[in-house]
Design a binder for these strands. Structure first.
Lengths: 365, 365
DNA sequence: CACGAGCATGTTTACGTGAACATCGCGAGC
DNA sequence: GCTCGCGATGTTCACGTAAACATGCTCGTG
């Protein structure tokens, strides 16, 4: 190691003062390099620096080089606050959600962040701990104060319906997983189609009917899946068994499975998500009901693990990435057109992934 | 419905013009209400509005009320860009990560977002698609331009070691899941302790040795778990079987399981995460090796589903929320002290959750 | 050779906020 | 009664950027 080598080599200057004075006593003094600093060093006006920074034409080669050199030397980085102030926009999209860790949300958010980044937008996350109306309102209020040009709302709970929730003006919105398509721009997976696919697959295998384990009642995704399940059965003229209520967790699916294992007529179950299907599998295994020989199980989501369940799970694939993509597309369209949120629902199709947890019912002997 | 009810009832004014003119033709005109507008309406100076907005003393009751009324009427919200420019900080923490959807990351980020919000900070997400060095550098550059006071880096890949990566000055950093504790402030789960707990549990049950399925080689979490696994076996004087290599996915665990099922001497396996443990369970089930009677399996993470695996999985619990909390604490300390990043590693303890996938080895007959 | 077009660059200004300083008015003390 | 002091409020300015306008130089053309 060469302790006196050029300082550039030392990878340490993190969070410290950049130059001039080691530690910055305490105050928040001139931490960042401004265009004026660069201009001074390069011997030009700050406007010329601005032109170079933004790639505007009309700066002759030599001058440009000088400015670029000065930028490099000082480590100039543009001040986004000043930029935002000047332009009146932040190039940032806010995401309000409840439960980042839940299956689909993290994948949706990841897609949102990726696509937003590709368009030059950053993502600001506003998590809501408990999705009470007050908290949602609070999040919107905070959003209003935040540096955000648009908001994507990912909340199952249907708090937007209260009608009292008015979003800050000038902020564009896209809502995921809600039936507020009459008033907001909504993007969602085609829940009904997915549920239909699941039910028809099971009926097609020869099952008399299909039982259902729902998600929480507060979830609109769950409601729509349950609705479509019921409708599909009715359309086929089959009896509609009473739905069992879960909460998305594997544990709740397990509980439902223990109950269903005692139903002799139950040969096929459609769980509203894969976690609950996992719980079903465990319950049926423990109760000695073979899957798929005795009972067929279909899930919803197609989480990566589903292919390694015992047995590998037949499930409805949701394209979370596409949902995220369309959300970004939606808010960007609003931002660029400058108009109000355009109500309407944009449905992302699903597809059934058939694995080993479904089979024709055992022939009655 | 009453179509001509008071307009207030209509929850529609989202993203539209707030007042004066329905649609805002196209241009980006004066969308937001500034302090000057409020001041004009209230008949005071904008400085007085500022004082009221910030709760400063020295504004007499009547004036304050007037200002507040004007704010309400105009729907005033402070401009965070101007604030950030004025104060030189953004009240925002950036999070650079690769793969939001991966198990722990989303939970860590959720905790980060929650705790940051409690401290008045927002979270800006910078996802990296492919964690090449270029992309990481790009992310840092973007971060520098972004409105961010500090950065939390959640990357398994050890790209920070390249030494050429210098973070933008004035930006404080905390790194998760890296061994760069000598140069950065690092927060991480105590991987070694967790692996030790798993191995000792299995040895304590009477197993001769413990096999291991690793995560990807690029992951430091995986490396440290493997290292600790090896060390724990050596300390106990047990033979160290060759580790099998996975990639965190259930599928890779399944592949490893198929191989291990053919090892007659294998009675206990420690998988570097729960997904791979799930794959093991599937493989052993298909190969007719009973868990835990024939083979014991331990995972790592304690994902919510683990309790519904077949059989319920014994695993090492990671406290992702605590990791997130300490990250926020770390960057806030840096921001407030104003100094440089303080190198050091902050380890969050783990604990073993014993379920039904582990048992003493079947007595040789 | 003179004049104007066109281009490189400089100067001014506004964006919204809030600290610092300025001013105004009123009440208390001499 | 006059002045001093203090509290309420107003004015100025800087934060960093970039559009709009201004300047000044060069080169081409009549």
């Amino acid at each position: 190691m060469d302790p006196d080598g050029p300082a550039r080599q030392v990878p340490a200057p993190i969070g410290g003062a950049q130059r001039g004075g080691s530690g910055i006593p305490g105050g928040r003094r001139k931490q960042r390099v401004s265009m004026a600093d660069v201009a001074r060093l390069a011997g030009v006006s700050s406007q010329t620096v601005s032109r170079v920074a933004n790639g505007h034409p009309g700066v002759v080669g030599a001058t440009r080089e000088q400015v670029l050199a000065a930028m490099r030397e000082l480590g100039y980085r543009p001040n986004s606050a000043a930029r935002a102030l000047r332009y009146g926009q932040f190039n940032t999209i806010g995401v309000i959600l409840f439960g980042l860790a839940s299956t689909g949300n993290s994948r949706t958010v990841e897609a949102i962040a990726t696509h937003a980044a590709a368009e030059g937008y950053a993502i600001t996350l506003i998590p809501i701990g408990v999705p009470t109306q007050d908290n949602v309102l609070g999040a919107f209020t905070r959003m209003g104060e935040l540096a955000v040009d648009a908001v994507i709302v990912i909340i199952e709970i249907h708090l937007l319906d209260a009608g009292t929730v008015t979003l800050p003006p000038g902020v564009h919105v896209v809502v995921v997983d809600s039936d507020a398509g009459d008033r907001y721009s909504v993007v969602d997976t085609d829940q009904a189609e997915g549920a239909r696919l699941a039910v028809r697959h099971l009926l097609g295998l020869g099952h008399e009917t299909v039982w259902h384990v729902t998600g929480p009642e507060t979830s609109f995704a769950s409601q729509r899946r349950a609705q479509a399940w019921r409708l599909a059965l009715e359309e086929a003229g089959r009896p509609v068994p009473p739905p069992l209520h879960g909460d998305w967790s594997a544990g709740s699916g397990y509980a439902a499975g223990l109950a269903l294992a005692g139903e002799p007529g139950c040969t096929a179950v459609f769980a509203s998500n894969d976690q609950m299907a996992l719980g079903l599998l465990r319950a049926f295994h423990e109760k000695g009901r073979a899957v798929p020989a005795d009972i067929s199980v279909v899930g919803f989501d197609d989480i990566p693990d589903a292919s390694c369940f015992v047995p590998p799970l037949t499930t409805v694939h949701q394209d979370f990435a596409e949902v995220g993509r369309r959300c970004v597309q939606g808010v960007l369209r609003q931002i660029r057109e400058g108009g109000a949120s355009r109500p309407g629902t944009d449905l992302v199709p699903t597809r059934l992934v058939v694995r080993d947890s479904t089979a024709p019912p055992r022939t009655r002997t």
